[in-house]
Design a protein around this nucleic acid. Structure first.
Length: 401
DNA sequence: TCTGGGGTCCTAGGACCC
DNA sequence: TCTGGGGTCCTAGGACCC
């Protein structure tokens, strides 16, 4: 999709059309640009840029927080259109998808015609612009769609993949970021064609296994194949939440409260997914941006708020230097579908927890996440504490009653 | 420039086991 | 005494994607 978040916002507020718009947060906040309208891009604003930098480049831009729910809804609508064209659709992200059109020629016509029809259908049914790349592999199709932006369709004729790629910057290869680009430049490799001309041995020596994959990519070979990896894959491998403080803090109570809140958010989502975490990780980042992680594998997998929070706080206090903190994060890894039971007693305890947390989750759905918090360190552990003034808590909507 | 949040995948060393 | 080879798990860090 083209400038997806901005385009969706324009559907809800027509006055934004044609203006420089930045989605991601307010101009003076800590944060980065999620999406910029084409008018804003003319000023040099682009995604991943700090909001404050965007403001300096384009102070007249309209800065909006964004509406994740709207983007998800429109992502679903786009998917519905794609699903009519092929049963084999894979959403690669909220605004990007792959379609396998193998064997649909009689229905949709040759590739360029099919892509063009798809482009029209998306516009007609969602009122959003997209760009489409059609090719013999996902890799080439993705790069082609990037080249087709904005609002274009590009078909790479079979056999011409390497010719198409050769003049493009190496950075266009998915997986080549800032660091790899710099390393490649240091070897005098700037274009994908330069890469294709080198022998595999040199690339492997210089860049390891990744170098070999890179050599293949530069010729348009896509090791991933089509849709094989989605089959039999259950999905998530980790669940995490992190938060950058508006102002760095060394306040113990504030840091502990944040760790508990993040742990509760992670635990809640584990329960939603019916998963249990074996490993808990925390991340801390200081004012100078130095970043550390600490992790621990638990004796048994859990999805309980207090168990996650206890591990997170312990890990944090063992690692923390006492200096002001910019960011805290809590991560659940090694996810398992069922808890490894140790005894009947454990099982009973777990069952009671399950019931309690179900009630807690219902309350949180109704009144907001911070209305209910599990009192930390309670050995009996089956009581919940209701805050008297939930509206005083940071970043939460007041309860309805 | 003053650097988000949610993810995936990879590397590498050390412990431990056979 | 002067110490293999293969495997798995755990931990920490980092590149990259949207």
């Amino acid at each position: 999709m083209d400038a997806f978040f901005v385009s969706v916002e324009e559907l809800f507020d027509a006055s934004l059309k044609g203006k420089p718009v930045v989605v991601g947060g307010r101009a003076n906040e800590r944060g980065v640009v999620s999406a910029a309208s084409y008018a804003a891009r003319k000023f040099g604003v682009h995604s991943a840029m700090p909001l404050r930098t965007a403001y300096r480049l384009c102070p007249q831009a309209i800065f909006i927080e964004g509406h994740r729910d709207r983007y998800l809804e429109y992502s679903r609508r786009v998917f519905a259109v794609l699903a009519k064209f092929s049963p084999r659709v894979e959403m690669a992200s909220i605004d990007e998808a792959y379609l396998d059109l193998t064997g649909t020629e009689r229905l949709h016509g040759p590739p360029l015609e099919a892509a063009s029809r798809l482009h029209d259908a998306v516009k007609r049914e969602t009122d959003l612009n997209c760009s489409i790349g059609a090719a013999t592999s996902r890799l080439v199709a993705k790069i082609a769609s990037d080249q087709a932006k904005p609002n274009g369709v590009l078909w790479i004729v079979p056999g011409k993949e390497a010719d198409f790629l050769a003049p493009l910057e190496v950075r266009k290869i998915p997986g080549v970021g800032k660091v790899t680009e710099k390393n490649l430049h240091a070897c005098g490799i700037r274009k994908i064609g330069d890469l294709a001309g080198l022998d595999d041995e040199f690339l492997e020596q210089r860049f390891g296994r990744w170098g070999l994959a890179l050599a293949g990519k530069s010729r348009g070979e896509d090791a991933g194949g089509w849709f094989d990896h989605e089959i039999g894959e259950s999905g998530v491998k980790s669940i995490s939440h992190e938060n950058t403080f508006a102002v760095d803090t060394a306040d113990r109570a504030a840091l502990d409260a944040m760790l508990v809140r993040l742990s509760e958010m992670v635990a809640r989502r584990l329960r939603d997914y019916r998963l249990y975490a074996r490993t808990v990780q925390i991340k801390l980042r200081y004012s100078d941006f130095s970043t550390f992680t600490r992790s621990r594998t638990l004796p048994h997998a859990t999805q309980i708020d207090t168990e996650l929070a206890a591990a997170a706080r312990d890990l944090f206090h063992k690692a923390w230097s006492g200096k002001a903190i910019r960011l805290l994060g809590v991560y659940a890894q090694q996810l398992e579908p069922e808890e490894g039971q140790t005894s009947l007693l454990e099982e009973e305890k777990t069952e009671r927890w399950r019931k309690t947390l179900k009630a807690v989750d219902r309350l949180r759905d109704k009144y907001g996440d911070s209305t209910v918090s599990l009192a930390a360190g309670l050995k009996a552990g089956f009581r919940a504490r209701v805050h008297e003034n939930p509206e005083n808590l940071p970043g939460k909507a007041p309860p309805k009653k």
